[in-house]
Simulated assay, not measured.
Amino acid sequence: MRFAVTSRGDETSNALQKKLINYLQEFDLELNEETPDIVITVGGDGTLLHAFHRFHDRLDETAFVGIHTGHLGFYADWKPEEVEKLVIHIAKTPFQVVEYPLLEVVVRYDDHTRADRHLALNECTIKSLEGSLVCQMDIKGEPFETFRGDGLCISTPSGSTAYNKSLGGAILHPSLASLQVSEMASINNRVYRTIGSPLVLPQHHTCLLKPVNDVDLMLTIDHASLVGKNIKSLQCRVAEESIRFARFRPFPFWKRVKESFIGD
């Protein structure tokens, strides 16, 4: 089996990364940073997000597992003191694969010459760099509303516990192949009106966002930010690809939710 280990970059995570590499090589596993069968991340959920984007072109062949060196994460569920146990599992135990849905975002431009396709594990956000965002939202090819406000967040089920939750969005179980659209400070009065509630769209529905005012946009795809100029539309839907996690023991989603937001 080929493996790669990525680190958050702090002293504790780097030391654990070296230990993992040594342990796994002692079991005759191959360190391979280009075409790994399994990627172990050491740090937190952000570290796994970076690893996902690094290996986004190998999602059918690569599975991910995370070790947290800080707080318990939704993706990083192993503790540093469990490293030896995890190594034995990886070396000796066939792992179960759990797949989570991803978000596909296709950005099209006014010149019609190109389209950029992105995959998000958590979410995509769209905001205006100048004043309010004004955009037409179509759902499944039909006009739905004209949004006016600070911005919109389109999240995956696994990303529903991140920025989406802080916006008042619902927490969705990752087994639901869907996306969620949540508003950021929408303008609602006698003249302007939005739905005012998060929308959950199933796998076969597409959300198309078309900016109305001529402004530059700030887009985020998970941890990455980019300034969008001359954007004609953003097409959001559940991606055909999915992320694969290596599971060596049960780790129920609702248990993670409870431990992260409620505690014991």
Rank of each mutant, 00 (worst) to 15 (best):
H56R: 12
E61C: 02
H50N: 10
S225P: 00
L208Q: 15
R190E: 13
E84T: 09
A246G: 04
N14L: 15
P157D: 08
N213V: 11
H173L: 07
I195F: 14
P198S: 04
V200Y: 01
D37N: 14
V181D: 06
N164Y: 01
D264N: 10
D111G: 03
C236V: 12
C153H: 08
C207A: 15
R249W: 04
I221C: 14
F55S: 02
F95T: 04
H53D: 03
M184A: 13
V215S: 12
T12H: 00
F27K: 12
K140N: 15
K92W: 03
V97P: 07
L234V: 11
V200K: 02
R8H: 15
D216H: 08
V238E: 09
A15M: 11
R193Q: 13
L49M: 09
L20C: 07
V257H: 06
V83T: 15
G196E: 07
D222L: 10
D138G: 05
I40P: 02
F261G: 07
D150P: 04
Q17G: 01
F27I: 05
P101F: 05
E130L: 08
N164T: 06
R193G: 06
K85F: 06
R8M: 11
K165V: 00
H173T: 07
D214V: 03
D264I: 10
K210L: 04
S128P: 02
G43C: 06
V5Q: 07
R2G: 00
V98E: 01
G131F: 02
K210C: 03
Y192Q: 14
T206H: 09
G46C: 05
R114S: 11
